[in-house]
Simulated assay, not measured.
Amino acid sequence: MPRLSEVIAALDALWPPSRAEQWDAVGTVCGDPDAEIRRVLFAVDPVQEIADEAVELGAQLIVTHHPLYLRGTTTVAADHFKGRVVHTLIKNDIALHVAHTNADTADPGVSDALAGALDLRVVRPLVPDPTDPSGRRGLGRVGELDHPETLAEFAERAAKRLPATAQGVRVAGDPAAVVRTVAVSGGSGDSLFDAVRAAGVDAFLTADLRHHPVSEATQQSPLGLVDAAHWATEWPWCELAATQLDEISDRHGWNLRVHVSHTVTDPWSSRFSSPGAPN
């Protein structure tokens, strides 16, 4: 069995911490470098439900996309919900490792997994990494559909292919507009509108779109916007990352058992449509 330090070295090779944004908090949150690792659980959020799932599964390592502590803290006391997660992990000898913005821009990364879930053929990064000579790393992806479809049909594709959430999928733009090229970005993406317009795509699928950026975007161009739940746009990466670790395990003869959590940790739990609201 590999030790935690060996598994972390492999994960850091996939998603180098040096490529994370300066404001980000990636890497190992807790765990003994010498501990043996047999089972690994991938998830989007390091919340209590995921910690409990890891305990039940008998995992020794959780890898999440979102950080537990994005900002500094002075306590991990168990009377706070994040402290309870830390206590659960340490009491059960479970390590926690985070790959966030370093996984967003990786090749393949979060947006590659999102594009794959939608059956898009990836053409290039939406915002290329200027330090990458291959031109494949960067934020977001630009992709092509295998055949043109309307914006409404593409939104239905997203609703069927992405994990189900209470939010579902929202659309801004003409439902009948023809879509051939699509930009995608897992997680919050309304800061990328300039890059999306410059890419000349027909539609942009992301999450957490706000009123004013969407209003301005729809006034500036006929760009179709598809807004899915944040968790749903990033969950496909868990499957991709688990496959990558499986391949590493096979190559090294580690015999790891790698799992993906299907627990929905999107915080929105219900949705109620107003009578007479647009469909």
Results as ranks from 00 to 15, higher is better:
Thr28Glu: 10
Leu139Glu: 11
Asp45Pro: 04
Ala10Val: 09
Ala164Leu: 13
Ile248Glu: 02
Val169Phe: 01
Glu153Met: 10
Arg84Leu: 09
Asp119Glu: 14
Glu53Val: 08
His230Thr: 04
Ala54His: 00
Ala78Ser: 14
Gly186Tyr: 01
Pro275His: 00
Asp79Phe: 07
Leu240Gln: 14
Trp15Gly: 02
Gly109Lys: 06
Val44Lys: 00
Pro133Thr: 10
Gly143Ser: 11
Gly138Cys: 09
Gly140Lys: 01
Pro236Trp: 11
Ser18Phe: 08
Thr265Gly: 04
Ile50Met: 04
Ala177Tyr: 01
Arg271Gly: 01
Asp132Gln: 10
Cys30Asn: 06
Phe193Arg: 05
Phe154Asn: 02
Val178Leu: 12
Gly27Ser: 09
Gly83Leu: 04
Thr263Ser: 12
Val178Pro: 05
Ser269Met: 10
Gly83Arg: 07
Val264Phe: 00
His100Asp: 13
Val260Met: 04
Ile8Glu: 06
Pro16Met: 11
Pro17Leu: 10
Leu57Val: 06
Val214Tyr: 05
Val40Thr: 01
Ile37Ala: 04
Arg251Ala: 15
Thr165Asn: 02
Val201Leu: 05
Ala241Tyr: 01
Ala228Thr: 14
Gly187Cys: 10
Arg39Asn: 09
Asp45Met: 05
Gly200Arg: 10
Leu205Arg: 13
Lys82His: 09
Arg210Pro: 08
Ser185Cys: 14
Ala59Trp: 01
Arg19Thr: 15
Gly276Ala: 02
Arg19His: 14
Thr75Leu: 07
Leu14Cys: 15
Gly143Val: 06
Asp34Tyr: 03
Ala232Trp: 02
Val142Glu: 06
Pro222Tyr: 06
His252Phe: 12
Arg71Met: 06
Leu89Trp: 09
Gly200Glu: 03
Leu41Asn: 03
Leu223Ala: 07
Gly173Pro: 14
Pro16Thr: 05
Val44Leu: 08
His66Trp: 07
Val110Met: 15
Leu4Arg: 09
Ala217Asn: 06
Glu216Ala: 09
Gly168Lys: 09
Val169Glu: 03
Ile90Tyr: 10
Gly138Leu: 06
Asp107His: 15
Leu225Asp: 02
Leu209Pro: 00
Ser18Cys: 10
Val29Gln: 07
Val40Asn: 01
Pro148Lys: 11
